[in-house]
Design a protein around this nucleic acid. Structure first.
Lengths: 245, 245, 245, 245
DNA sequence: AATGAATGAGAATTCATTCAT
DNA sequence: CATGAATGAATTCTCATTCAT
């Protein structure tokens, strides 16, 4: 007679209001553990969401992929929407973290712009499916959180915008519209993931980046900028030879 | 993995194998009726899928929106996947139909290229949500059918490619890579839908197109091409004044 | 890849706001059918809730008991809370319907009071477990609906109150407090269900009613009332002999 | 039907059979500690069960309310059913302890009866929600333990019965049926909790008791009894004035 | 003794699909 | 052809209970 309290049996919602739309509450207190477990969960989620999509991936599958039990997921995450948010954040954060990291050592506005594009494309190549995920699934997020993801995108865009702006300010590039130019450069990078099914037949990543720069950067350079551009290309040619075995 | 089968479902498939992945079988024979009903269904589907996404839209909602009964949907469509296919096709077909229709009357390669881009953007503006749908939901299609949608995209791309090629052949444009150039122009158009949330704060559609052409077409033109370009812009300026009241 | 839309996947709640807390929405339109199916569901629910309690009874069990599928329940009811509301209403409505029906043919205030009590006790005897259910589970209802059930109880109480009042007005009974007197008479009836485990060892229903009247009615009667009371008892004695085969 | 067992659970029961249905086993040996911890747990349980009901209260909530960890609960209790038993016992024991305690100093059968009723009502007023809990949740107990709670109720009832009996034996009251009379007096007390939602609009506790005695005791008194009754009322009037600041 | 993270069996609810009418 | 009630598998989320620390 005395039986388990059924799952659906809650008279009052017990979840406390989140601190903000971006905050993901965890029932577990140890931050070390939260970090680790969430890492497992989100990595699993990115992998599965990327492959099968958000709605067709079950929490059970995520748990199995993460090597934990179903219930445990809910100790670190409020609901499936949280998992999606965390997954998308992981992707956007990677862009935002890795591009600047790589730029630190690079000097010269054109060189920096080219490096930024190349780096962005390389990250996207690594996160190809995950990048597609951001296009597929951002709309599946709750409204307030969708905005959060957009903010992340805006921040990454600003990195490229800044590079474009430096080129212009240094008199190495002439762009009628820095904002749009930067946006199209970003889209160029995203396109590698979005249209990989078509592009892979014709391009290697390196070739894609090279041709893209020739198309979207080179034509807008000033004479001065063209010198820097040639140097930048030579550079990256060097680097490729270096890293190729 | 597959869906529930009511009790009485027989184990042997009753439906005949479809003619091909793109064929959508209907139990109804009268082609007039098939056309009409499917029209209702697909228009409803595009609307709802665009707004809420594929997985969160139910067949019952589509039926209600289409003004027919749930069961009737299944007289014109094998399953939900069929509806998605038809919906995505509708969108792609619109691109493929309307751009050439508009180009018929336009002469001169640069003018044609600019018109193609502008037209594409205008269509996308009208089908903004539906365009986003193609990015969100193509992967939800069964594999063989996804290819179909890609084919449709390729055909549309080829329209733009042809325009680019004509410019180059006519010595009005110099593009290191016609294919990539065309693809980026297509992406420019798609971006109006994909990033409308950001772009609408800064651009009207007309301004977006104008700035885009300045960025992605103008810099690659030859001296000759630039003359044509100026004329094309003047043209469309005319047209705008004409249509504006 | 294309897979069923999971249960939990709804971006926006689809349920329309109910007309009022007491209204139970049905997706099925044919009122005949709604009546019939709800009858099945609610009878099954009263039976199972009475036996095992609200929380330990599953919708699946209710569906099975009702002879329908799980999903169908949700065509006639919004959620489990609706089922409980309907179940409790059924019980309260029975009191409210049957007591007055029986009183129609009865004359004389004391006789009517005694009949009301006896009838109430008989109904409760028939709905013993269901009556206990109202005590166990009313608090499990959503707040606004709990009130509804209370209102039903109040209406039934008023029937008894009116009987008490008539006796007093007719000078056949002297009660310091009509309201409380009526309430205790109601509780006397409920007690037959609530404490059946103890009472059944000592009383038959008839005996219980008889002793209860002697205790809670007789001592407050006026001389006049006592005459009527004696007649009423003789009456019901008659009736018992009559109905006993 | 029975609850989940974590992976490592052995198939052979590890817990020794309890001494009896009423015995609640503890893994902790120090009786001092058992007493203290159980006190915390059960007080928390009564509070939470009273407010939200048995099934909608989780062990985790009880632990939090008690200021201990989840796991620790299971050192002092076998399962959730144990907690309910202890909680219900606590309530019943309070009745059984406090009524006689108060009667010790009271003399005269009618006075004792009135005091018993008044005391019972006062306790119930203090434990209003908990009293309702006994009605809501006794059936959720395992069968053998439900009986235990009934026994407790029977013992409390006997206190009232004894008071009634004394009155009758002393020739101060004439009751056709001492058992039923006592039971209805008990129900009168319980009703203060069960129907508080209705009664509070019309009565203070003191008024309720006074009117109840007038209704359920006074009419059955002999001439002699009436004298004692008047004195008893005067008494309690005194007392009220005394305690009211 | 005490902690609290971890487990996993359920339970409510949804909806693609079918079929009697 | 058309309707819409009926089916039931699948999914999300909960929580009693355990156990490593």
């Amino acid at each position: 007679m005395s039986r388990a309290r059924p799952a659906g049996a809650r008279s009052t919602p017990r979840k406390t209001a989140a601190a903000g739309p971006g905050h993901v509450q965890s029932l577990v207190t140890d931050p070390r553990l939260v970090e680790e477990r969430r890492g497992q969960i989100v990595r699993a989620a990115v992998k599965l969401f990327s492959g099968r999509g958000y709605y067709t991936t079950t929490i059970q599958e995520i748990a199995r992929e993460a090597g934990i039990s179903t219930g445990l997921v809910y100790q670190y995450v409020r609901d499936k929407d949280d998992v999606l948010l965390l997954a998308l954040k992981l992707v956007l954060d990677t862009y935002e973290r890795e591009i600047p990291a790589r730029l630190i050592e690079v000097e010269g506005p054109v060189r920096r712009l080219c490096t930024a594009i190349a780096t962005y494309c390389e990250i996207i190549d690594r996160l190809r499916e995950a990048t597609v995920l951001t296009y597929r699934s951002t709309k599946s997020l709750r409204d307030d959180r969708r905005r959060l993801i957009m903010d992340g995108e805006v921040r990454t865009n600003r990195i490229i915008q800044a590079c474009v702006h430096s080129c212009v300010k240094a008199g190495q590039m002439r762009t009628g519209n820095e904002y749009l130019h930067a946006y199209m450069l970003v889209m160029f990078c995203h396109t590698w993931a979005l249209k990989y099914w078509a592009l892979r037949k014709r391009y290697t990543l390196a070739r894609y980046v090279r041709d893209g720069l020739d198309l979207l950067v080179a034509p807008l350079l000033t004479a001065q900028g063209r010198v820097a551009y040639a140097a930048a290309l030579a550079d990256s040619e060097q680097r490729r030879k270096g890293t190729a075995r």
